[in-house]
Amino acid sequence: MTTATPTPESDTALVQGILAGNVFAFERLMRQNNRRLFRVARSILRDDAEAEDAVQDGYIEAHRALAGFRGESQLSTWLTRIVVNQALARRRARRPEASDIALDTLVDEGSDDIIQTPETEAMRAELRRIIEASIDRLPEGHRTVFMLRAVEGLSVDETATVLGISAGNAKVRFLRARAQLREALGQHLGTLLEDVFTFDGDRCDRIVARVCTRLGLQPPAPPGLPAHEDEPPHT
């Protein structure tokens, strides 16, 4: 499923709403970007809890710097760059890590056309786990490029902008990452990529609530509960 690219007008309206103190505009900003930001932070840190913290810190920084946003790139690209920097800073603060483990050769003979049963669902879950582990084992410089290009669907130029590298470098890293994963997993990545590093509703709600609390904002009502009286009507 292809997600429509936000227009500059929608970014401008969102920024104006946030700067005017509309907490619901800030909630929309977070919910629209939470999954991408978590995935890119997770690809750098390889730890769910640290990735959540990096995303939250990124939102705090973005909220404080939002008045300086000039629309020279998409708002989502600007946010992703902030979270990438947060994740990289966290990784640098760690003790030096051991060298990456070489990928094992993992080939699965499967098909998306088979009838779904508890057994096949279990096999699918296991293959997803193997894919996630294999992505984690990609070389550091290739892993985040792969997540942004293959999983989040960013263009070469957007990926290069987010990571502060050249478009040519982004292309090379992506091709090498994809070749390594294909060698490890065969040709069965396609439809499973959408499921990797699952970003569920609880995690999304948790990030929104914690960021609002840290900024002294009243957290919006969780989905399914009555909204605050000052929430603008949905259109």
Rank of each mutant, 00 (worst) to 15 (best):
L127G: 02
T144Q: 08
E140D: 13
L138N: 02
E158Y: 00
D108H: 14
S111C: 13
R182G: 14
E109H: 15
V162G: 04
R178L: 12
G168S: 10
V162L: 05
L193V: 07
A98Q: 11
R178N: 15
D202Y: 12
T213M: 13
D108F: 15
T159R: 04
A179T: 04
D113M: 10
V196K: 00
R137K: 11
H188G: 13
D113L: 13
S134G: 05
M123G: 14
C204N: 09
E119L: 10
V211Y: 02
L185V: 00
S155F: 09
E158P: 02
R128T: 07
G190I: 10
D113V: 13
T191L: 13
Q187M: 14
A150P: 05
V156C: 10
D157W: 03
L189A: 02
A125S: 05
R143W: 04
T105G: 09
D157E: 09
A125Q: 11
E140N: 07
R128I: 11
I101Q: 09
I207D: 01
A209F: 03
E152L: 03
A167S: 14
T213R: 15
C204I: 07
R143T: 09
L106W: 07
D157L: 07
Q180D: 08
R210M: 03
T213S: 15
E194V: 06
E158Q: 13
V172C: 11
E194S: 08
L106V: 15
S166G: 12
L193Y: 05
I135R: 05
S166E: 10
G168F: 11
T191S: 15
V156S: 00
D112L: 14
I101P: 02
K171R: 15
L127Q: 13
G153H: 12
N169Y: 07
I131W: 01
A167L: 07
R182W: 10
I207S: 04
A167I: 01
L163T: 01
P118F: 00
I114D: 12
D113G: 06
L163D: 00
I101L: 12
R176A: 08
G186N: 07
R124G: 09
Q180P: 00
E126L: 12
L185D: 00
